[in-house]
């Protein structure tokens, strides 16, 4: 398995709305806290260290 970089989310607009809606009323610090938790939750779901390393490298730009 390698990191999926092709579109993989059904209803992308709906997902994006969910993502931003959960943080609409949050200040900067609370949103950052939530993002940190989200990263950890998703990272655990992926689990594969190789894929996580690819994702870290991509996110670092």
């Amino acid at each position: 398995m390698t990191l999926i970089l092709k579109p993989n989310i059904p209803d992308p607009d709906g997902f994006y709305q969910d993502l931003t809606d959960t943080q609409r009323d949050l200040d900067e610090a609370s949103a950052s806290d939530m993002n940190a938790r989200l990263v950890l939750i998703l990272a655990n779901h992926i689990g594969d260290r190789k894929i996580l390393a690819e994702a870290l490298a991509l996110a670092a730009l």
């Binding site: 950052s32 806290d33 940190a36 938790r37 990263v39 950890l40 939750i41």
Partner: peptide
């Protein structure tokens, strides 16, 4: 520190 606190917050629930 933000990741550290996120780990601790999540540890209680998951």
């Amino acid at each position: 520190k933000r990741f550290r606190n996120a780990v601790l917050d999540l540890a209680e629930r998951a």
